[in-house]
């Protein structure tokens, strides 16, 4: 697969300065809530591990604007995320979507819990029949 290299850190070293954008408010509280939630979940691609809600990078501002526009035009969460993933790939979302290759992220915790539960039951059942103290009969 062909990969692309993000720019040298010298150009893009972004300190976690946070974006405070008072224009970032939507009139409709439901839409505003959706806007906040989505921008918190979209990764700023040119920053080091920051969401676009918290980034001052120009690209993050552009993406906020685009998300805002889509919400105002009535797009729902899935449509907006599809729009972003289509353009920037799965990397753009902080909560990974289900894909065949990343199923382990979502199945892993379930498998761990199941294995843990089985281990607990097996151990407890085995110990149940043993003497409570070593020197007890």
């Amino acid at each position: 697969m062909i990969r692309a290299l993000t720019f040298s850190l010298l150009l893009w070293l972004s300190l976690p300065a946070h974006a405070i954008d008072p224009s970032d408010k939507l009139e409709d509280p439901v839409q505003d809530e959706l806007y906040q939630r989505i921008t918190e979940e979209v990764r700023c691609l040119v920053c080091q591990n920051q969401s676009i809600a918290n980034s001052t990078a120009p690209l993050a501002a552009d993406l906020r604007r685009e998300i805002r526009r889509m919400i105002e035009e009535g797009s729902n969460e899935t449509e907006i995320k599809d729009f972003l993933v289509e353009r920037y790939g799965d990397f753009v979302l902080y909560r990974p979507r289900f894909r065949s290759w990343n199923l382990v992220l979502w199945l892993g915790p379930i498998v761990l819990l199941t294995v843990g539960f089985i281990a607990l039951v097996v151990n407890v059942r085995r110990r149940k029949n043993l003497p409570v103290d070593e020197d007890a009969p």
């Binding site: 990969r3 353009r87 790939g89 990397f91």
Partner: peptide, 11 residues
Amino acid sequence: KDPTLVSSPFI
């Protein structure tokens, strides 16, 4: 691998 490598969905 460079961890900042991101594959482009446009290829």
